[in-house]
């Protein structure tokens, strides 16, 4: 089974309907990225959840819930949280992930550690097979 599934998300073309699974993937991805951005900012600030709750004028339980997991945040909520944390606001830009160049770091390095050794071993085995075949070739 191959693990090379990098192309399962394809760019929208003409009038073809984008698969629901692609939308689903991208929605989750964006929710997680926004959550990650907010949590990074929160951690950087050094605030406690109780302090953030006071700044927001909200119950600490609500803030705890917001920070526990990615959600379908309204833009108002993100705007309030970011500003309350550090006076920050979202920066808007559009990127094209399907057009991004392939990264070199798409594999786990230590899984490749012994690859040269394996290849060399396979090569040696190949050579032995070839010479053995030559010996056994009928005259």
């Amino acid at each position: 089974m191959s693990t090379s599934q990098a192309s399962w998300i394809s760019a929208p073309t003409e009038a073809d309907r984008v698969p629901k699974t692609t939308f689903s993937y991208l929605r989750t991805r964006n929710k997680r990225r926004l959550y990650s951005l907010v949590v990074k900012e929160f951690k950087k600030s050094g605030l406690t959840q109780a302090e953030l709750a006071r700044r927001l004028g909200r119950n600490p339980d609500v803030v705890c819930r917001w920070l526990a997991a990615p959600r379908n945040w309204e833009i108002d909520t993100v705007s309030d949280i970011l500003f309350a944390i550090s006076g920050a606001e979202l920066s808007y830009t559009v990127t094209y992930p399907l057009k991004a160049p392939t990264r070199n770091s798409r594999t786990i390095p230590w899984l490749r550690d012994d690859l040269p050794a394996k290849e060399a071993k396979a090569k040696r085995a190949d050579t032995r097979t070839t010479s053995a075949d030559a010996r056994w070739e009928p005259a």
């Binding site: 399907l98 990264r103 798409r106």
Partner: peptide
């Protein structure tokens, strides 16, 4: 199996 990210431009 190792899992590379679904989008080509992203690393592990």
């Amino acid at each position: 199996f190792e899992i590379p990210p679904s989008l080509e431009g992203e690393g592990i």
